[in-house]
């Protein structure tokens, strides 16, 4: 499990914001810095969790890796090859190997298509399957993998005839149909309730082990990330602030932001109902259009000192084996 399958280096995506007339005349441009210098490696057969609050740039990172959008800067390597810029043919081959499960299963399936048509779409794009018969057989096979069985019961259904959990299974089947090796799963279980969530994650884990897949698991839910992922990266305003194995990161967090996230997570245990929970950080995440100077977490950080406000942002540094953190003060605070 040591071979690196995917690596991103200093990846950036800045979206231009609309300018006022004054800004336009002065030639000023403002940017939404959605992803602003992200680097990580994912090993073959690994589940890598990318977690963070709404708007921190998780989906944008996923879309960059899927090559659905062009990066503003940085590089992407797949199996050691630079795939940042690809010819149309190479891109097509890449898109067969790297698949994405989208955040919203309602929006990602054409409501007028029956399930076998939804599943045949990627096959047609990639010219797989000689005829409808063959495509239907492949679709049935994919449905069986995600336990929508017997597949014949589901092939002719429309997506609105499925429960939330079944719809998510169908979305997973669609990504599996091209036999990819890498899957970006963007909040695959956030729309279903807890029992269904557990069941879907178990299914995804079984498939991953069986087929030797690698996942980038995007979520805002630390509890499922701990259970599901091997390693976790915590993202804040377009940057990774901490990264480590799932157990190490949660049992021994180093960044004040990670610590605050962990403190906020509810747990099904007694004795909490009469307490007002201590939440170490104030306010909410600022806009990616106005990124604070220095450490971008400093306005909310209870431990910020002058250096944090003025020095350039702390880079991710190795704090222990496989555990990296971007905070000037992590040692004193630990």
């Amino acid at each position: 499990m040591s071979e690196v399958i995917l690596e991103v280096k200093d990846l950036k995506k800045w979206f231009p914001l609309k300018r006022s007339l004054g800004q336009w005349l002065r030639g000023q441009r403002t940017w939404m810095r959605a992803v602003d210098g992200v680097s990580f490696q994912i090993k073959k057969g690994e589940i890598f969790g990318l977690i963070g609050e709404s708007g921190c740039g998780k989906t944008t990172t996923g879309k960059l890796i899927m090559k659905l959008i062009e990066p503003t800067g940085g590089q992407i390597f797949f199996r050691g090859e630079d795939v940042t810029h690809l010819s149309p043919e190479a891109l097509k081959a890449y898109k067969r190997e790297v698949q994405m499960i989208f955040q919203d299963p309602y929006a990602s399936m054409n409501p007028r298509f029956r399930l076998h048509q939804v599943l045949a779409e990627p096959l047609t794009i990639h010219r797989i399957g000689a005829n409808e018969q063959e495509k239907r057989a492949l679709a049935a096979e994919a449905l069986t993998k995600v336990k929508l069985t017997p597949a014949s019961d589901f092939l002719d259904r429309f997506s609105h005839m499925l429960s939330g959990g079944q719809r998510q299974r169908a979305a997973t089947a669609r990504t599996l149909i091209l036999s990819p090796s890498f899957i970006v799963a963007d909040e695959p279980v956030s729309m279903v309730d807890l029992s269904t969530r557990a069941e879907l994650l178990q299914m995804m884990k079984d498939i991953q082990e069986e087929l030797g897949l690698t996942y980038l698991y995007i979520t805002h839910d630390l509890s499922t990330a701990r259970y599901f992922a091997d390693r976790i990266a915590v993202m804040y305003l377009g940057r990774i602030v901490e990264m480590g194995t799932a157990d190490e990161l949660i049992d021994h967090p180093l960044h004040p932001y990670t610590k605050a996230l962990i403190a906020a997570v509810p747990e099904p245990v007694p004795g909490r109902v009469n307490l007002i929970k201590e939440i170490p950080i104030k306010g909410e995440i600022p806009s990616a259009a106005q990124i604070p100077s220095g450490c971008r977490f400093h306005p909310r950080c209870p431990f910020a000192v002058d250096d944090c406000r003025h020095l350039t942002a702390a880079k991710l540094i190795l704090a222990g084996p496989g555990h990296a953190v971007a905070c000037w003060r992590y040692k004193e605070l630990d």
Partner: peptide
């Protein structure tokens, strides 16, 4: 089926 952050579990139960 409720995941717990502060405790590592190998398998989450679910209600079939």
């Amino acid at each position: 089926a409720t995941p717990r952050l502060r405790q590592k579990v190998d398998q989450l139960a679910f209600i079939p």
